[in-house]
């Protein structure tokens, strides 16, 4: 390597290395991204071209989108999903912040372990009892029922990610506030809360995405009146429910918002996911 560098010169070597890195990146990322490109481009493909997988150049149509929006419950369920995920995220965030603070500062290992175990219980194991209770309480097919069930996703996840963020806030700042006469609760409000805002933003976004993407809970506990976006999209898995263009239009409609989020706040997301995953 050193010999090569000497042979072709430092600058040329550097350019070569950079080209190699970018080519490798494109080779790796390209096939992964292709699926999304294929999804979008198929959603604007005219129907008569559908049995021609090799045709890539055509005049894009928005017909599939109007069909999906007019003929399915997808818009209604996107609104439902927004309501359910927002509430579940807000509650998960508050619980997460408060519990994470005590776990980080009082070293409550047993509580942390208990919350970790709740993340391991598969949703399907809990769905039988949920369904029984909901049927008796009239919570099936309601917003309240789905919000409550989505708390199973957002609370443990919120706590787990917030622990990492709280641990990153220096304890000394809080102690300085105590010396100034602030009580522990006041110091939490004045010092910890403002400093944990970036962590809370990352946590909120992740909770929202996981709740938004969840399919199984609404599949069982939702119904004709109240269901979520994934359930609407799932209906297109049945080939009889629409053309493939409509299928891809439905998929694009629910994927796009998340993409926008990822592009804008990629850094916080990465931080949240790695912190939540490792600590």
């Amino acid at each position: 390597m050193v010999a090569l560098r000497r042979l072709i010169g430092r600058r040329a070597y550097r350019i070569g290395e950079l080209t190699f890195t970018h080519l490798a990146m494109i080779a790796v990322v390209g096939p992964f991204f292709f699926i999304f490109f294929y999804m979008f481009w198929s959603s604007v493909k005219p129907d008569y071209l559908f049995f021609e997988p090799g045709v890539w150049i055509f005049e894009p149509l928005l017909l599939n989108y109007t069909d999906v929006i007019e003929n399915s419950d997808i818009i209604r369920n996107i609104v439902n999903s927004l309501i359910i995920s927002s509430f579940a995220t807000a509650i998960g965030l508050i619980c997460g912040l408060l519990s994470a603070y005590t776990i980080a500062r009082f070293d409550l290992r047993r509580l942390a372990l208990g919350i970790l175990v709740t993340r391991m219980i598969p949703y399907i194991t809990m769905l039988v009892p949920f369904w029984i209770v909901y049927k008796n309480a009239g919570l099936l097919n309601t917003h309240l029922g789905l919000i409550l069930s989505h708390l199973v996703i957002t609370i443990p996840f919120g706590v787990w990610i917030m622990i990492g963020f709280i641990e990153d806030i220096p304890k000394e700042l809080e102690e300085a506030a105590w010396i100034d006469g602030a009580s522990r609760a006041v110091a939490f409000l004045r010092v910890v809360l403002p400093l944990s805002t970036p962590g809370m933003v990352a946590t909120a976004i992740l909770c929202f995405i996981f709740s938004w993407n969840n399919f199984q809970l609404a599949l069982v506990l939702g119904g004709f009146d109240v269901s979520t976006a994934p359930v609407s999209v799932f209906k297109y898995a049945d080939p009889e429910s629409g053309s493939m263009g409509q299928m891809m239009a439905a998929a694009t409609l629910v994927t796009l918002p998340v993409f926008v989020i990822v592009l804008f706040i990629q850094k916080q997301l990465t931080a949240g996911l790695t912190v939540g995953g490792i600590k």
């Binding site: 999804m39 399919f215 999209v233 898995a237 439905a250 997301l269």
Partner: peptide, 13 residues
Amino acid sequence: MPMISMSVAISLV
């Protein structure tokens, strides 16, 4: 993007 997008949607693709 793959891990952030909705499983059901990308499954259709």
